[in-house]
Amino acid sequence: MTTLGLPEQFDKWGEARRNGFLSIKKLKEEGKRIVGEYCTFTPTEIILAAGAISVGLCGISEEPIPDAEKILPRNLCPLIKSSYGHAITDTCPYFYFSDLIAAETTCDGKKKMYEQMAKIKPTHIMHLPNIVDEGGLKLWAGEIKRFKERLEDFYQITITEDDIKKAIKDKNEERALLMEYFRLGALNPPPMSGSDIHKVLYRTQFKFDRPRMKAELRQLIDDIKADYNSVERKKSNRPRILITGSPIAGAINKIAPAIEEAGGDIVVYENCGGPRSNRWLVDEENPDVYYALAEAYLKIGCSCMMNNDRRIELLDELIDEFKIDGVIDISLTACHTFTVESARIKEFVTKEKGVAFLSLETDYS
């Protein structure tokens, strides 16, 4: 449960996605460029450098899945089916108002979904390497440059390296603020609930006025710190929980309350959108902006990568930093890469860190 007297602050962030529906319609009517994306591997800096708005697309509800299953197989990840279902039923305003979809080959299911999605919306596929080495870095740097060229051609604009450098600085500021926010969970007692942590990290992508979004995030952090330090707080003995695994935006609304009602505190997430994709900044001093972006993005420890040591390294750091008592590894049904990798995560967490571990497979029902 939230331990601070700031519920209205978190409610405001919870409303961001709903309010974003109206905002994106207004921005579209004003002639703004809008690019939709599904994954943290998407180099948002290139979208920003194009003078476009980057928006995360819908894929968290079970409602459109029956429509998706008319084309996609039932034994497919619910995130993919939900994403495609929203697209074909026009139930995602963000998809509807996007000019182009930035797509990435993180898994086979997504690859085939994007083939279908390209029939209804311009879709640019970025070919993600499945191993992080020098060859992979060169491939991804080339794909980022190719994405830049696609946006230039699509919008009939020129994107300069100075534009990209400004966007890198902008996104680095956002990443630094998010990490400062996440690190508040290391306090004991934690100053916010796991639901509130996830609410803010997820809703950030639906605040399209970037200077205002960063200012509001700065204010939220400062308010939490001020409130936390305003009284002496007794340390909690509730188990401190780390959530890891698949993208879980649709499932967390049933999982987080169950954990917290059972007496645990979710203090950090090692999922898409959390420290996994925000802990490392893009090198602003590297003159090769494409290589700098590739290097930073390929530090994301996603299970789609072979020999995914980066995820182990991050879990090692987070378990120590947040004084974790238990790790819950959540895999969406048919998310094969995360499900297979769960065995390695269990071995590391239990044998090397001596921490309790639970593997949980679920869908959006």
Results as ranks from 00 to 15, higher is better:
T44V: 07
E261I: 10
C77G: 01
E45S: 08
G31A: 09
T91N: 09
F41L: 13
D162M: 14
T158G: 01
F348L: 00
L318K: 02
L318I: 10
R279P: 00
P191A: 03
P239W: 06
E143C: 02
G264Q: 05
S98Q: 04
T105F: 15
I46M: 09
K138G: 06
L220V: 00
D162W: 07
E143Y: 10
D133T: 06
P190E: 11
K214M: 11
T339V: 01
F357G: 01
F147A: 09
Y290R: 01
Q156R: 07
A249V: 12
E30T: 12
I159E: 06
A87F: 10
F154G: 04
T350S: 15
K111V: 12
K148S: 11
D265H: 13
I101H: 10
L4E: 14
L242Q: 14
T44G: 15
K145P: 02
D316H: 00
G136P: 04
P211H: 13
D153G: 04
A256D: 07
A334S: 13
E104G: 05
G20I: 06
F357T: 05
Y297G: 07
C302T: 04
M305L: 02
F41H: 09
I248Y: 08
I60G: 11
G59F: 08
I328R: 14
R212E: 10
I252Q: 12
Y155D: 01
K25V: 12
T91G: 12
M179F: 00
K346Q: 05
F208Y: 15
R233V: 13
K166D: 04
N253P: 00
E260T: 07
A262W: 11
R238T: 05
A103H: 10
K351P: 01
K25C: 02
K121V: 03
F95V: 00
